[in-house]
Every structure is written in structure tokens, then in C-alpha cells.
Design a binder for these strands. Structure first.
Length: 247
DNA sequence: AAGAGGTGCCGTCACCTGAT
DNA sequence: ATCAGGTGACGGCACCTCTT
């Protein structure tokens, strides 16, 4: 009973925009598959010199047929879907042959410019596996931004309405209620406050993430249905054409 | 019944980003 | 520069299911 965002085709038709397209072009790392328009270019390392990349989820799309022809869908980890130019059918289906592209941040990207894992060694955990692993990851737009583009006010209002944060307020005020002491106590109090806030932030972040994933799953279902329908339509049109041709 | 493996949730840490 | 908030990653815990 959450304030789920509804799909274009399925019900309601609230005219949502593309969660992946985000509209929040932060101009950061070049590997983000995010753009105000539906198509972004990104440079790929090694074998794939340049590919045209596009979110499979079109903003307010009417048709599953992409505007840029000859596009093949590619599933990426982290749930991103990109489309790679390929001379094939206009209609692309999920059952088609898929190519997985491995996308890594460029050496001079925003992410790696701040990390420099291999050079600085004064910090103890600088070359820890965790940190190195993180540096390989690209940052995506926040769920808040994404959900704002999905009609975030509605979701935010919904959240306020259902008020899971009621107990948060209670816990927050109760944890802050003890008397301030000397500096040590003050520090521990600050730390506890930070932990508390972060705990709640993490809770909220997970909630938004789940909502976002649900939204994407809905979109996938709708697109698959549209795809099936279009394939059927194409099939029948072909048959009709063949019939008329033989007559 | 006991153990193993999978899954989901939570708290925490580390880091990034935007605001001031 | 500093701070606050958002989020990915990680480890721990609880619960469920399956196998022996």
C-alpha cells in the first residue's frame, strides 16, 4: 500500500519520466548512463571504442520501438540497461542475443581523479581491497533525484502521510534528551546523534531503493508486454503482406 | 533434529555531493 | 573549508528451505 509509481501503459498513466534518464545530468563521471535526453554517448575501454547508449526506458514513450534504429539491448550489472548499436531488427526483444559490455571508469574520470589508490600510501587503508573495489564503481544519481523525476512530490507526500518517521522523531528526541556533560560526553553524544541520523537515512535510502526497483520491474513488465504485442502485430502484418503478394 | 545455504533487513563505515 | 545528507559496501543476525 505504498505510493507506488504507476506505469505508463498499465494503469493510471501518470506520465512518469525515465528513472534512468534521471534528468539530473550532474556532469560527473562519463560512465553514467544518465541524460536529460534519452541518448547519451559514452566511451568504452578496449575493444568497444564507441557505442551509442540509451536508456531502454523512454520518457513518456508511446512505443517500444526506439527512435534510433538498429539498437541492441544490453544488460549491465547494477540493473542498468544500455542499448548498443547493431545492424539488426528495429524491434529488439529481450530474448535476442545480448552482448554484455564491461564499463570501467576512465583513468581521468571524476572518480579516479579523487581516489588515486595506487599513488598515495600515507593512509593506512588506502590500498585495501574495499577501497580499490569502490574506486572501480561509478556513482549513479541518487534515488531522491530519480524519484523526483518520477513525480517525487507524490512519493514524498505519501511518505509523510504514512509517517514511518513518527517513531523516528520519538527516538531522536529521546536520544537527545540526556544532559550534556564535559567534552568527552559531548563527543559521544555527537557520535550517537550522527549514528542515529545515519541509521534513519539508511532506512530511508533502502525504502527509496526498493521503490525504485519496483518501478523498474513494473516498467520491464510493461515493455515486455508491448514487445510481445508488437511482435505479434508484425507477424500478422507480414502474413497479410505475403497473402496479398501471392494473390 | 541438525546443519548448510539462501535471502532479507539492519547498523555502521566510508565516501561523495551539494549547500552554506 | 565545513557540514549534512545520501548511498554503496560490508558484516551480523534472523528466518526459511532443503538436505542428510
Amino acid at each position: 500500500m505504498e505510493g507506488m509509481v504507476e506505469e505508463n501503459g498499465s494503469s493510471g498513466g501518470s506520465g512518469m519520466s525515465d528513472p534512468l534518464a534521471g534528468g539530473s545530468s550532474s556532469g560527473g563521471a562519463p560512465t553514467h548512463v544518465v541524460a536529460a535526453t534519452s541518448i547519451v554517448q559514452l566511451t568504452l575501454p578496449a575493444q568497444a571504442p564507441m557505442a551509442q547508449v540509451q536508456s531502454v526506458i523512454q520518457p513518456n514513450q508511446q512505443s517500444v520501438i526506439q527512435t534510433a534504429s538498429n539498437i541492441q539491448s544490453v544488460q549491465l550489472p547494477k540493473g542498468n540497461v544500455i542499448l548498443v548499436s547493431k545492424p539488426s531488427s528495429v524491434i529488439h526483444t529481450t530474448q535476442g542475443t545480448l552482448q554484455t559490455l564491461q564499463i570501467k571508469p576512465e583513468p581521468n574520470s571524476l572518480l579516479s581523479s579523487q581516489g588515486q589508490s595506487c599513488s598515495d600510501d600515507d593512509d593506512s587503508d588506502d590500498d585495501s581491497p574495499k577501497r580499490n573495489y569502490r574506486e572501480m564503481l561509478t556513482r549513479r544519481p541518487s534515488y531522491r533525484k530519480i524519484l523526483n523525476d518520477l513525480g517525487g512530490a507524490e512519493i514524498a507526500d505519501n511518505r509523510m502521510g504514512s509517517k514511518p518517521g513518527c517513531e523516528n522523531e520519538v527516538s531522536l528526541s529521546s536520544s537527545l534528551s540526556f544532559a550534556p556533560g564535559p567534552m568527552l560526553e559531548d563527543q559521544t553524544r555527537k557520535r550517537e546523534l550522527r549514528l542515529l541520523k545515519n541509521r534513519e537515512a539508511a532506512r530511508e535510502c533502502r525504502r527509496k531503493k526498493k521503490e525504485y526497483i519496483k518501478c523498474l520491474e513494473n516498467r520491464v513488465a510493461v515493455l515486455e508486454n508491448q514487445n510481445k504485442a508488437l511482435i505479434e502485430e508484425l507477424k500478422s502484418l507480414k502474413e497479410l503482406y505475403c497473402q496479398q503478394k501471392t494473390e
